[in-house]
Structures are given as structure tokens and as C-alpha cells.
Amino acid sequence: MRHPLRIAAALLRVGVAEALVYRAQIIIWMLATTLPLVMLALWTTLAAEGPLQGYSEDTFIAYFLATILVRHLSECWAVWAINEEIRAGSLTLRLLRPLHPLWAYAGQVLGDRPLRLAIILPLVGLAFLLHDGPDLTADPLHWLAFPVAVAGAWLLQFAVHVLIGALAFWTEQSLALWSVWFGLWALLSGYLVPADLLPRWLQHLNAWLPFHAMLGLPVEIALGRIPAHDLLPHLALQAAWCLLLGAAALALWSRGVRRFEAYGA
């Protein structure tokens, strides 16, 4: 095995082992992700009297089930780890190793995926089986696009976590900004409301922003709501945002590290 693969495998092994140690905490986090269920109840009630812009009760059920799945696949929590390690000075130890710290954070975050999937896949799968109505897409092209879109969604999440986490190099208030970001993200990503139910002007604006690519895009691909000929432009826009935010995150990180004075280390 070549070195980068060996390092990735070692990081993931450690991430999985840590996730298993923190299994109770992760399961509680997962159970606490109830917002899609609340929105599911809300929207199905509203749609009980008739479909809302093409969304029936059943469509909402499928939409929010897929949302739960994608949310757990693309979830990231690096901002808290980064913030804490910069403020406490323990980032020092990561900087001493010949490995970019962002790889280590990525490994830690992705290490909990097997545990999350082991819990969420059967639950969501069962719900889809029991649910009578629009289902996951059967189109192979969409199934090919789905993992790509999920990977892109995760990368975008990670880049934003690094961008906001790295602000801790300059300010003690970076987590406050995280709350502002989360509010915007929840509204525009499709987490609270499907993106095509937003007001028309906001839809036009949102089409060029990164939020939809961070959740709504993979959800809509899983449900086959995006026509096959539109897949490529959507994925291309997602890739462009990955490049842009990824480059910004890297640039901010390296400026921050230069400034890092390792207080308390």
C-alpha cells in the first residue's frame, strides 16, 4: 500500500476505534437529530388537505427520510474540535507531526460513519419499506450520482467547519458565527424546507449558493427528483463550491497556523 493510503487507513482505524469508545454519545447525538422528524410532522399536516406545489404527504415523508439519511452521511463536527484545540493550545501536538492536521480531523469525523450507518441504515430502510408512496429512485444513473453528491456535501461541510473553526486563531467568538451559519444552512439547504418550496426569488439566489449542494442535492438525487440531464450541472456547481471553499479553508488555516502562538501549550 502506498503511504497516503496507509495513513488514511490508520486515521480511519483510529477514528472508528474512538467512535466505538464514544458510542453512547454518538447514539444520543443521532437520536437528538429530531428536526427532520419535526419538519416531517409539520409539512405532512400542511399537505393533508392537498399537495403543496407538487409535494404530497407521501412525498414529504420520502423527502425527510432521505434527509435523515443524508444528514448522517454528511454530518461533520470538526468546528468544535478545531476551536477547542486552538484555544487550549493542544493543536501544538498535531503540528509536530508530519501530517496536515486537517487530514487528522477528517479521519476523526469520518471514523464515526460505520457506527452511524449501522444504526441509521436499517431504520431509514425499514421506514421506506413500510412507507407506501414515492420511494427512492431506481435509476442507476441517479445511484451513481448519489455517492458523488454525498461526498461533495461532506467536503463542503468540512470546508465550512474548517473556515469557521480556524477563526479561533483570531477570535474567541468563532462558535457564535457557527450558530449564524447553521441558521442559514438549515433554511437554505433543504433541511427544514425543500429548496423548491422557498419563495421564487430566494430559489433563484439559492441556486448559486453552496447550501443546496450540502444536503438538498443528494436528497433530491436519491429521490430521483432531479432530471438525469440536470445531474451534471448540479454536480459541477457542487464541485466548484468544493474547490472554492476548500481553497479558502486551506488558505485561512495556513494563515492562522502562522499566527498560532500555542498559548498554554
Binding site: 503511504h3 496507509r6 495513513i7 487507513a9 490508520a10 486515521l11 482505524r13 483510529v14 507531526r97 508530519p98
Partner: peptide, 10 residues
């Protein structure tokens, strides 16, 4: 586990 990780990183 830390030792194994260092083996890969170094």
C-alpha cells in the same frame, strides 16, 4: 493505537 498511527504518519 497511537504508536500504530505514528508508524503510518512517519
Amino acid at each position: 493505537d497511537t504508536f500504530d498511527l505514528n508508524r503510518a504518519i512517519y
